[in-house]
């Protein structure tokens, strides 16, 4: 099943560093079952930490390592932090679509999905002067009709699914399209291993915050595998989780280990999807 991607510059594998700036949105959504839960300041502060403090430190780290990344941001976050989002874009990183307030698309009607997409694209145009072409579905699944809607709305790729370990052309009604999916994986997601809150509980079963060394070792094992098979690894980080002072040191180390291979292509979602569309 492994394809020969023939990555640019004879690179052996592709690496997409992606960061979902969810900020407060996941927490205020998650707390909705509690009276006043949207105003629970402690859990909101866990989310706010991302745009408030961590994104800048991540930008610095990416800059130091000369890597362009992809940031998926709910457009509510873009509205609230326009300067920060402009800075990300000015640094040459890509900004992708991630709903307005991190809505679960699966639960939304066609009209509601259109409204969220249009409203968000307006915000993107206002803040960074262009629409997003990449999409990552917020909070779980999307509806069956969503893929077609995204194509109609001019999106070029998505990074939402889990069903492969490399990008592919999305098939609709039995036909390959130019709409590329760059799948990611739970085991490449920092939130799964390290996000935590006691009340309201996150994760639901409140399992422990993992040992950092083991987490980064897993990340490294997966890289080794993707490299060996010549695939495209797509790390899914969240500034509020990966951006603590200690974890950033380990992220820097991971990046340096990946870079030391020499023949690795670090690329944004757009670069990867363009390559796959035209060369695979």
């Amino acid at each position: 099943m492994s394809k020969d991607f023939g990555w640019p510059n004879s690179s052996k594998c592709a690496v997409m560093m992606s960061f979902d700036i969810d900020g407060e949105t996941t927490w205020s959504n998650g707390n909705k079952g509690y009276e006043n839960g949207e105003y629970y300041l402690k859990s909101l502060s866990i989310g706010r930490y991302g745009p408030k403090r961590c994104v800048k430190n991540i930008l610095e780290l990416l800059d130091k390592n000369n890597i362009k990344a992809t940031f998926f941001a709910p457009s509510w976050i873009v509205e609230k932090n326009p300067e920060l989002i402009k800075e990300i874009a000015l640094n040459g990183h890509e900004i992708g679509h991630h709903g307005y307030k991190h809505e679960r698309f699966y639960d939304k009607t066609y009209e509601e999905q259109v409204e969220i997409i249009d409203k968000s694209q307006e915000i993107f145009e206002r803040v960074i002067g262009k629409k997003a072409t990449g999409f990552r579905t917020p909070s779980g699944d999307w509806a069956e009709f969503t893929t077609k809607l995204l194509i109609d709305k001019g999106f070029k790729y998505s990074s939402s699914m889990r069903g492969s370990d490399s990008p592919y052309k999305t098939v609709i009604d039995g036909k390959e399209t130019d709409f590329i999916e760059i799948p990611t994986k739970w085991e490449l997601d920092d939130y799964v291993q390290m996000a935590y809150n006691l009340f309201p509980a996150e994760p639901v079963g409140q399992s422990r915050i993992s040992g950092y060394d083991s987490v980064f070792e897993n990340f490294k094992w997966e890289f080794e595998g993707y490299y060996e098979f010549g695939l495209c690894i797509s790390y899914m980080f969240h500034p509020q989780v990966i951006g603590t002072p200690g974890r950033l040191i380990l992220l820097d180390k991971l990046i340096n280990e990946i870079k030391s291979r020499g023949d690795v292509w670090f690329a944004t979602g757009s670069q990867i999807s363009d390559w796959v569309r035209h060369n695979v």
Partner: peptide, 28 residues
């Protein structure tokens, strides 16, 4: 407690997490 009764964390992991964070806090 915890709700899903996750295992007690390995002590060495916890110590190392705290040391990693200390290094980050110190540098910044």
């Amino acid at each position: 407690f915890p709700a899903g009764q996750g295992r007690i964390a390995p002590y060495t992991d916890v110590l190392n997490n705290w040391i990693h964070e200390y290094e980050g806090y110190k540098n910044k």
